[in-house]
């Protein structure tokens, strides 16, 4: 199993997986973070109430979140082709990964920000802070530890999604597991990719939690 070619394959697969996951997470946060902030701010008793917008966003996010990722992956093929030019390979997989995880990230961000003590926000208002100042100087900095934990969860979820993309030629470790393990019955290869995925998930989760703990100043 560990021939030179196989090792190269695993190495390339791992690199592809990292590439997909990191780029997707970054892009998904570019969409999900502002979306999550808007969800909190626009609530009925938020700092800038916009009930209409809040409802529409909420429905849209729930719609996207209720589609199982594998279905979304297939359904989004035309969109992926239109953007990347192909629906195969790791770069193409980034498109459904971003669309599939951005709503989930928005909800995570929303719940992290809601954990911020309402009293602190009220204090900022009493000092004459504008809604934008409250978001940038109170909500996001105060929610940083919780946002970090959320990012660790998001990144591992996206890793799981990326492996699913292996079934439709998405590249990375998922494709190796499917091609060798499922189609060629090479169980050992499948188990080894699985072990690699477990290790990567553990690493991301552990690092995320440690960073969150280190930056949280609520602990003495």
């Amino acid at each position: 199993m560990f021939s030179k070619e196989m090792l190269k394959l695993f190495l390339e697969g791992t690199a592809e997986t990292f590439y997909m996951v990191l780029v997707s997470t970054l892009a998904a946060y570019l969409i999900g973070l502002p979306l999550g902030v808007v969800l909190v701010v626009s609530e009925k008793d938020g700092i800038r109430p916009m009930p209409g917008l809040n409802r529409i966003l909420g429905i849209l996010i729930n719609l996207l979140r209720s589609a199982p990722f594998l279905i979304l992956l297939v359904a989004l093929t035309p969109v992926t082709r239109a953007i990347v030019g192909t629906s195969l390979g790791s770069t193409a997989t980034i498109v459904p990964l971003v669309i599939g995880s951005a709503p989930f990230i928005a909800r995570m961000v929303e719940s992290s920000i809601k954990e911020v003590d309402a009293g602190v926000i009220e204090a900022a208002q009493s000092m004459g802070a504008s809604p934008m100042q409250i978001v940038m100087r109170v909500m996001l900095p105060e929610a940083k530890p919780s946002l970090t934990v959320g990012a660790a969860i998001a990144i591992t979820t996206i890793l799981g999604y990326s492996a699913m993309a292996g079934f439709v030629g998405g590249g990375g470790l998922g494709t190796i597991a499917v091609n060798y393990g499922v189609y060629r019955y090479q169980t050992d290869v499948m188990l080894f990719t699985l072990a690699l995925l477990v290790l990567i998930v553990q690493a991301f989760q552990e690092v995320g939690m440690r960073i969150a703990n280190r930056i949280d100043k609520r602990k003495k």
Binding site: A123, S126, E142, P145
Partner: peptide, 15 residues
Amino acid sequence: RGIGMIFQQFNLLMQ
């Protein structure tokens, strides 16, 4: 800005 306020639970930025 011309009206300061303090609270029962202090409401400081914890981070």
